[in-house]
Amino acid sequence: MSRRDQIRMTPDEVQAFFAAQKVINVASIGPDNRPHLAPLWYYPHEGGVATWTYGSSQKAKNLRRLPEATVLIESGDSYEQLRGVSFEAAVEFVEDTEQVTRMGIALMQRYAGAAPDDPAPAELQAFIAGQAPKRVGLIMRPTKIASWDHRKLAGVY
Results as ranks from 00 to 15, higher is better:
I73Y: 00
T70Y: 00
P142R: 03
T10R: 03
L107D: 11
K134T: 15
R34Q: 13
W52L: 09
N33C: 09
P133F: 11
G113N: 14
Q81E: 07
W41V: 06
R64D: 09
I105V: 11
R4K: 14
A69M: 05
A38E: 14
M103A: 04
V71D: 00
I139W: 05
K134F: 10
S78I: 02
I105D: 04
G155Q: 06
P119N: 11
A89R: 00
E92D: 10
M108W: 12
L37I: 05
I29K: 01
E46T: 04
I105Y: 03
K144E: 06
F87A: 02
I73P: 00
S147P: 07
P67H: 04
D5M: 11
L124S: 05
H150S: 03
A115T: 14
E123K: 11
M1W: 04
G104F: 01
A112D: 15
H36P: 02
A122I: 09
F127A: 12
P67K: 04
L66G: 01
Q6L: 15
S86K: 03
G113F: 14
A20K: 10
Q21G: 00
H150D: 08
T10M: 02
P142C: 09
I7Q: 10
L37M: 13
S2I: 03
R110N: 09
F93K: 02
T101D: 02
A38S: 15
S86Q: 08
M140D: 02
G30A: 12
P121Q: 12
Q125A: 14
T51V: 06
E68L: 08
Q131E: 15
T51A: 12
A38I: 15
I7R: 05
T101P: 01
Y54G: 15
A106Y: 10
K134G: 09
P142I: 02
R3K: 15
I128P: 00
H45L: 13
S28L: 11
V71W: 01
H36Y: 14
S28M: 07
A154N: 15
K59T: 11
A20V: 08
L40Y: 04
D77M: 05
A38R: 11
G113P: 09
F18S: 09
R83G: 00
L124R: 06
S2P: 14
V94D: 01
T97I: 10
A27Y: 02
V26Q: 01
V136F: 05
T101G: 04
L138D: 01
A60I: 07
M140T: 05
R102N: 04
V100N: 01
L63E: 06
Q6P: 04
A50E: 08
G55S: 11
E98R: 12
S57L: 09
A126I: 04
